[in-house]
Design a protein around this nucleic acid. Sequence first.
DNA 1: GAGTGGTCTAGACCACACT
DNA 2: GTGTGGTCTAGACCACTCC
Lengths: 236, 236
Amino acid sequence: MAAQAKHEYIGQRVRELYIDNKPAREALPTERKLAEEFGVTRATVRHALGRLETDGLVSRIQGSGTFTMGPTIAKSLKLTSFSEDIRLRGMIPSSTLLRSVEIPADVNIARNLQISPGEPIVQLVRLQLANAEPMCIEVASLRAHDVPGLLDLDLTGSLYDLLGERYSLIPFRAEQVVTATVTTQDESTVLRVPPFSPALRVTRTALDSRSRPLEFTTTLYRSDRYEIRFTVRRDS
Amino acid sequence: MAAQAKHEYIGQRVRELYIDNKPAREALPTERKLAEEFGVTRATVRHALGRLETDGLVSRIQGSGTFTMGPTIAKSLKLTSFSEDIRLRGMIPSSTLLRSVEIPADVNIARNLQISPGEPIVQLVRLQLANAEPMCIEVASLRAHDVPGLLDLDLTGSLYDLLGERYSLIPFRAEQVVTATVTTQDESTVLRVPPFSPALRVTRTALDSRSRPLEFTTTLYRSDRYEIRFTVRRDS
DNA sequence: GAGTGGTCTAGACCACACT
DNA sequence: GTGTGGTCTAGACCACTCC
C-alpha cells in the first residue's frame, strides 16, 4: 500500500538535493541528466518538475534550463487548515472553543452547504491563536448528518484532521472570498484589538472530490497580524 | 507563425464542445475517445485536460471519468491588469490619471524593485473605475530607465499593454500581498466613500520570466464593491 | 469484469537560448 | 552549432469506479 508514484518520489528527492537551502537562480541538472540519475524516462522527470514549477519552487526557461526560485515568501495558495497555515508561517497554533452547537441552517449557510434552510447543522466558533496571541475568529458550519457525535470530541485541534480520521471527509478544494471589514465591539474584545479595527474576512466553502460541500467557514483575521500572500502567473 | 500547440488547440475545442454552456457534473468523452476524435495520442489529450483541470474547468476522477465543473464563480488566480480583471467581472473599465512623475525611489519601493534608494522611478497614480464608478486607487512604480518616455504617453489604458508593446516588458508572475485597512480622508474623497471605510490593500511586485522586478504596485480597493475570489486545492 | 483515469517507457522532432 | 526545455507518438500496465 501507499505505493508512491515515481514522479512523486523524484519530486521530493530533487527538492532535497537541488532546491531546499539553495539560493535563487541556481541551475538544476538538465531533464536528461535527472532522467538518467533516477533511471526513468524524461517524461517522468518532466511530470515531477511540472509539479515543482506550479508549486513555485522552480522556474523553467526553454532553451536555457531549470532554476531554483529561492526561498520565495509566497507559495501558491493551498487548501490548508488554520493549524497548517500557522505552522507554515513558523508559529505555533492553538485554539479556544467559544461555542459549539447544533442549530438549523440559516439561508446563507444552507445555500453554501447546498442543503435546505432549517436543516440541522453543527456550528463551531473558535478563537484561533498563533504563539498564544489571538489571530482570528473562525465560524465553521457542517451538515449535522455528516458529523454525528462531533460535538462530543476535542474540538481545539485541527478540524480537517478530525473530519478525515473520524468521518472520512476529505476536503479536495475550496472556494474562497476575501473582503475587508472592521471589527465589531464583540469581535474586538475577543481578538483584543481596538473597536472598529480593520480586519480581513475570508469565507470558504470546502468541497470533496465530488464537489459536495463539506464545510462552510467564515474567518475574521486581525489585519495587523495576518496578511494573505500568493503568487500569480500569466499563463500556467 | 503563431503555430499553436496541439494540446492548446484541443483544450480550446474541448472547452467549446463539451464545457462552455454546460451544466455542472456533465461527463466529457473519455480520454481515449478524445484522442481518436482529434487524431492524437492520449498523452496529448491528457496534457490539454490537465490544463483545463488546473484552470478549474473540469474535474477528473480516476476510474470514473472527466466532468464539467459548471460555471464556477471563482477561477484560480491569474496575473491580470485592472482592465482585464474588471472586464472578466463583466464591467467596463476606465481610468483617470491623478499624478505621473519621475522621482527618486524611497526605501520600500527600491527594495521591491531591487534598485538602490534614490534611483529614479516613474510613478503613476491612477483612479480606476468600473462602469464609471470609482473602484480603486492604484500607485504603480517602475524603474525610470526601463520606460523612457512613458510619461509622454496616454496612461489611461492598460499599463501592461503599454509595457509589452512599447518596451517589451512582459510580466510573467507577480507576488501579491493582501491586507485590510481603512481609507484616509484623502483616499475617501477620491474613492467617494465615507472616511475610514474598510478597504483591501493589495501590493504586487510583477516580475519577468527571469525574475527581474518590472513593476511595484499598491492598490487600494473599495471593499463594498470589490472582493477577491479564488479556488484553492489540496494537492495539485 | 469492463471501462475509466493515472503512470510510465522509449523513442523523435521542434523552438529557443547561448556562444 | 550545441544544448536546453517543449511537444508528440505508440504503446503498456496499474489503480480505481461502477455494475
